[in-house]
């Protein structure tokens, strides 16, 4: 194994990993079975990323890994070694909310708020790849993010409006 491991007196192995999270580099010591979401929440205090089903169904733990949305509950921390991670905390720049975040607020796309961070990360990945999506494409992109308040109508509106606003700025 190429990764450095430290074995403690109980025989438990720990590994040294380096994560780039929201542009900052962190070096952490993690157990082999630690999942990424727990490093983000417990070690780095980035509690914007939520835990729901912890089985990859609900999407509340969605973060971007090298720009692509993944369920951070199903990614081992050691597997994220050397990768670039973006969480919801990484979107606002200098206290200025991301256009998507603004749009969610303005369209009342946030009800209880639990799904919101994951929902926005999925939408962010979509707009980076496809700045002018159709409603169908938006729905497909967020299909892995469950909103149990069932506020999908406004969520879809918010994403489409953010896309429009971004397109406008580019033109």
């Amino acid at each position: 194994m190429s990764m450095e491991a430290i074995t403690d007196k109980h025989g438990v192995k720990r590994y040294l990993i380096t994560l780039n999270v929201n542009g900052d580099s962190y070096t952490k010591v993690v157990k082999g079975n630690t999942v990424l979401v727990n490093v983000l929440r417990d070690d780095l205090d980035l509690t914007g990323t939520k835990k729901g089903c912890e089985l990859g169904d609900c999407g509340s733990c969605t973060v971007l890994m090298d720009g692509k949305p993944v369920n951070s509950c199903l990614v081992l921390a050691v597997e994220a070694d050397g990768r670039e991670i973006t969480t919801i905390e990484g979107l606002a720049q200098h206290e200025q909310l991301d256009r998507l975040q603004d749009s969610f607020v303005n369209h009342a796309a946030v009800q209880c708020g639990y799904c919101t961070p994951g929902m926005i990360m999925s939408a962010k990945a979509l707009l980076s790849k496809n700045p002018d999506p159709t409603e169908q494409e938006v729905r497909e992109a967020i299909a892995g993010n469950l909103c149990r308040c069932t506020g999908y109508v406004n969520i879809v509106k918010a994403v489409l409006a953010a896309a429009k606003a971004e397109g406008g700025a580019a033109r």
Binding site: K68, V70, L74, S122, A143
Partner: peptide, 9 residues
């Protein structure tokens, strides 16, 4: 298949 997050991993 699945959803976008699962399709990425």
């Amino acid at each position: 298949m699945a959803n976008n997050q699962v399709r990425n991993t």
